[in-house]
Nucleic acid binder design. Structure first.
Lengths: 228, 228
DNA sequence: TCAAAAGTGTTGTCAGTACACCCATGG
DNA sequence: CCATGGGTGTACTGACAACACTTTTGA
């Protein structure tokens, strides 16, 4: 062939978190080195020669942010020449979801600063990371309608209104409380527990619900399609 | 950082064609070099240092098969260590659709042999290319239901039954002729022409229809969702 | 005149949508 | 007792599914 190819392969992750107070947040790190030193960026880095792409993402997330990922899926690969000013870098991107109890950031092994940013309040990002987040949001918005990935953004047990608010937030449209509940409960993979939610303010306490993954897979195998 | 990364980046394309006689076909090339010499494989190859991923796919397709692609979209990136026995190679894959008049293979500039294979009749493929085709089929099957990409597999003007057979083939289920036509025509972006189809055998000749892309985008902007 | 494929309408069923009042709790 | 949020049922409407006979052509 022609000259030796000189392209690097990296992975980057768009990790979403959710709380009903804050809405959707994304996990960012502050870069310690040039280029874009001190800018915020997606966690990620070069893939090692002998690790899979998934392992690379997990490793980088662990090193840079120490968060526990509940769901991770490949998003898209970005490879336009010039997207990294140093070398040609093709980045295979992933998006991940974490449950609220994973939202607190532990001390990092790596010295990089990591933080959650509300989607409505994101700083300017390094490289083409803004485009990557846009793509991830589109994917989340599309996928939450026909796969029950929303549960990966909620605690194990959650009041029903949390689920409803999550869908309203992600889909950016109001949801009818009664119709939504009827529809969800009819699928049969959401279990109502007898536990009541802890109130943070006034209001009637509701029951907690949980997602029955085994039941979901069973129904899916039978050809029952989830769709909102 | 640690040692210099030693990973190559390639692109591969799963190109689908369709005829009502043959159903879905995929475009393959016969490898001229080791490894997997003389095996059939997806068209593709290493990305050049200064070309975009899309340009790389188009170039490889041109060099190896000379087909005219109507639609091209990124599919997935495969990067497991060991998928190529020589070096670590991360392959960014695409899937493409060609209209029937592009189904004939011209003389290639490259000496590689290229051929269309019916999906029901595929040979064993090199590398993990079988997995890639499976992924592409899943994507096609999913996407054809909510984006009108099916038209990229038909001639500019087509008898309505072609569209119906295409959907039946891709979705692998029978389709009710009357209900399907009602549903499609109600969207308003399919135009019925006065031309009649050329018959190849007995039967009443039907009118030809065509897809009005401008109208589709207009309706889409207004929020009308295509869905089968 | 027979075989093949195109054209066309009605009816029943079910899912989606719109909508409002009462209940349990905290302050 | 007031404010907040949870819990619940009905009636309308529109989409989808099921279904069969007639027409045009080639052989």
């Amino acid at each position: 062939m022609a000259a030796i190819q000189n392209i690097k392969v990296s992975v980057d992750a768009v990790v979403f978190g959710y709380t009903s107070k804050e809405g959707l947040s994304v996990l960012l790190i502050k870069r310690k080195i040039e280029p874009f030193k001190d800018s915020w960026a997606l966690p990620g880095g070069l893939v090692l020669d002998d690790e899979s792409l998934e392992d690379a993402v997990q490793r980088e997330l662990e090193e840079e942010t120490s968060v526990n990922i509940n769901y991770l899926e490949q998003l898209y690969s970005f490879g336009k020449p010039g997207r990294d000013p140093r070398n040609r870098v093709v980045s295979v991107t992933y998006y991940g979801l974490v449950k609220p109890d994973g939202l607190t950031l532990e001390a990092q092994t790596d010295a990089a600063e990591a933080a959650w940013f509300n989607m409505r309040n994101c700083p300017k990002l390094a490289f083409d990371h803004q485009d990557i987040i846009v793509k991830a949001l589109q994917r989340l918005k599309g996928k939450i309608r026909y796969e029950p990935i929303g549960f990966e953004l909620l605690d194990e047990k959650f009041p029903f209104s949390e689920l409803e608010k999550l869908y309203a937030t992600v889909l950016e449209r109001p949801i009818d409380r009664r119709n939504f509940k009827k529809k969800i409960m009819k699928f049969g993979f959401i279990i109502e527990t007898n536990e009541k939610q802890q109130l943070e303010s006034a209001g009637r306490p509701g029951n907690l619900f949980c997602f029955d993954q085994a039941k979901y897979f069973e129904l899916k195998k039978q050809g029952i399609a989830f769709e909102i």
